[in-house]
Design a protein around this nucleic acid. Sequence first.
DNA 1: GTCTATAACTAGATAGAC
DNA 2: GTCTATCTAGTTATAGAC
Lengths: 212, 212
Amino acid sequence: MIDTKEKILDVAEELFSELGFSATSLRAITQKAEVNLASVNYHFGGKEALIAQVLSRKAEPLNKLRLDHLGILQAKGQPSLEELLTAFIAPALQMVKSKSGERYIKLLARVAIEPIGDVAKNLPGQYTEVLDQFVPAIIEHVPTLPAEELYWRIHFMLGNLGYCMAGQDAMLLNSENRLCDPNDIDGMIHRLVAFVAAGMRAEVPEQYRKAS
Amino acid sequence: MIDTKEKILDVAEELFSELGFSATSLRAITQKAEVNLASVNYHFGGKEALIAQVLSRKAEPLNKLRLDHLGILQAKGQPSLEELLTAFIAPALQMVKSKSGERYIKLLARVAIEPIGDVAKNLPGQYTEVLDQFVPAIIEHVPTLPAEELYWRIHFMLGNLGYCMAGQDAMLLNSENRLCDPNDIDGMIHRLVAFVAAGMRAEVPEQYRKAS
DNA sequence: GTCTATAACTAGATAGAC
DNA sequence: GTCTATCTAGTTATAGAC
C-alpha cells in the first residue's frame, strides 16, 4: 500500500507520545497500523530512525510556515524586530492548538527526559536552516550585540517558546489568581513578542561587552 | 526508625525521577528503602501524597534561599530590578549543579508529561509565598504595568528559568556552533537577568494598555 | 541464602521468496 | 513493497549446585 509509511508514522507518533519510546515496541506499532513488522526497517531503517522521522515530520511544516512568513516580510522591505519575532513565534504557538501539535510538544519533552540514541543530539539540526535565516535578520536590529550574547538570547527565546507551547500541561501556568489566560494564544503571541524584543535589545552587561 | 520518612523520600525521589511515577511501585520504593510497605501509607497517606512531598521537599530550600536573598537586599534599602531578579533566578540555576537538583528538574518535567492526580495542579501553590513577596517588589520598578501584563511576564521569566535549568538535557541547547556554553552558570545568570529585566521594562503593546 | 547456568520470552534487525 | 522465517541481543525467571 502506498501510504504504509504514513500509517506507521501516525501510529508511532500516537504511541510514542502516549507511552514513551522504549515502552513502545515496533511490534505494537506495526500491529496497530496493520502493516508488516519488517516494513519499519524497510521504510525507515530502524526504530531510532523512525523516531527521528516522527519528529522531523512535525518540524518540517513548522519550518515552512516560519520561512514563508519571513519571506513575505522580507519581500515588503526590511521587517521590524517585532515582525521577525512574530514570524518565528506565532507558527509554533498556533500549532499547539491542534491535537497533533500537542503530541509534538509532548514528544519533544519525552526526547529530553528519555534520551534514545542520538535522537536528541540530532534535533537541533532540524531547526538550523530556519535559525540561519532568522538570525542574520535579527542581527540587523541589534548590530552591536556580540555573537555569543545573541545566541544566549536566542536560547532564552526558545525557552519562552517551549514553556508557552507546553501551555496548560506546564506545571506553573495553570495557576489560579494569576490573571492571565493561557488559552489566549493571540494575546500570548503579542505579549511574548514584546517581551523577547525588549530582551533582545537589552544593554549588554559590562563584563560581556567584548568585540564579537 | 526515626528517619524512615527521609529514607522513603530519598528512594522515591531517585526512582520517580529515573523511571517515572507510574512505573515506580510502592513495593519497589519500600524494598529499596528497606522499610515496610505499609509505612508509605502511614507517613504520607498514599502514593500521590508521597509524590507531592517529594516535590515540596525540594521546593522548600529553594524558597528559603530566594526569600533570604530577598530579605538581605531589602534590609539594605530598595533593591534594583536586576538585584531582585537575581535573587529569584540565581538560587534555581545554582541548584541544578547538584545531582539532587538535576533530579528535581527531571521530576518537574515528569509531572508535566505524566500527570498524576492533582499533583500538577497543586504545584504552583508551593511557590505562591515566594511570588507574593517578589511580585510587589518587582512592581515598584514597573509601576505602570497592568497586573495582567505583569503576570504574563512573570510566566515568561519562569519559562526562561525552566529551559535554562533543564540545561544540557534540553533538546535545543546542546547544539554545536551556537557559541554559548550552558555550563557557564554564572554567565547564564547574569545574562538571563539582563534579558528578563529588559522584558519586564518593555513598553506594553497598545491593545493591552488598559488600567489595572 | 547466595550464586550461576540456563531456559523462556521479547525486541530489533535482516535475508530471501514472492 | 510485502511477507515469512530467522538471527542476535537483552531481559526475566527459574532450577540446581554449593
